[in-house]
């Protein structure tokens, strides 16, 4: 139980997927313009990441290792993630057309989101059990959503700020992301050893 809690906290704050490993920058910079779409994207990514890690773990330990097929690791993980994203897109299109329009192109881009493949590969490399893998995926998604929401809040405030003309748009967003990453580095002392 303590182990799960440690994984939960460390994945959200210390080893945050976006700000420490720098995976998933594409939706991070693309969808963080408004808080509503950032929230929707964060929820979608959390859902996909949790399911992706769980299903990938099951397939990895029951099929791939059992039959000595570890070389199929990447292909199978991508297959699982792509199918999950397709399912999520179908759900969102049916039950929330407004969110579907707001996310636009960035919804299918969750498929190639290196954060999700990264989560699956990290879970394999760290030899997690099933409960740990699910927690890892879930907290990875939550950490992603947290950073996305913070970025969306800052960007909405930046709209009213007095930014020099050359810095407006992508430039100030990137600099803000860099500063956010520095801020999150301060969490690294949270868990000793």
């Amino acid at each position: 139980m303590k182990n799960l809690f440690l994984i939960f906290i460390s994945t959200i704050l210390i080893n945050n997927f976006v700000l420490t490993y720098f995976l998933g920058i594409c939706p991070f910079l693309g969808v963080s313009g408004r808080i509503e779409s950032a929230f929707g994207m964060g929820m979608a990514v959390t859902f996909v990441m949790t399911l992706a890690t769980s299903i990938s773990w099951l397939i990895y330990h029951n099929i791939l290792t059992a039959f000595n097929l570890i070389f199929l690791e990447y292909v199978v993980f991508i297959l699982v993630i792509a199918s999950l994203v397709q399912i999520v897109e179908m759900f969102i299109r049916k039950f929330s057309p407004a969110l579907y329009q707001a996310l636009g192109l960035y919804l299918p881009l969750i498929t190639t989101n290196c954060a999700i493949l990264g989560a699956a590969l990290f879970m394999v490399a760290k030899n997690y059990g099933f409960a740990e893998a699910v927690t890892f995926g879930f907290s990875g998604g939550l950490g992603f959503s947290l950073v996305l929401l913070i970025m969306a809040g800052i960007r909405q405030e930046l709209n009213y700020a007095d930014i020099p003309q050359v810095f407006k748009g992508a430039s100030i967003t990137l600099i803000t992301a860099g500063l956010l990453s520095l801020i999150f580095m301060g969490f690294s002392g949270l868990i000793s050893a």
Partner: peptide
Amino acid sequence: ISILSLGLIGLGFSLLLAFLN
């Protein structure tokens, strides 16, 4: 074995997707 397992996993997901579609 690799062809079979990958094929079966792929088949499983495609059936799920077709049904949900």
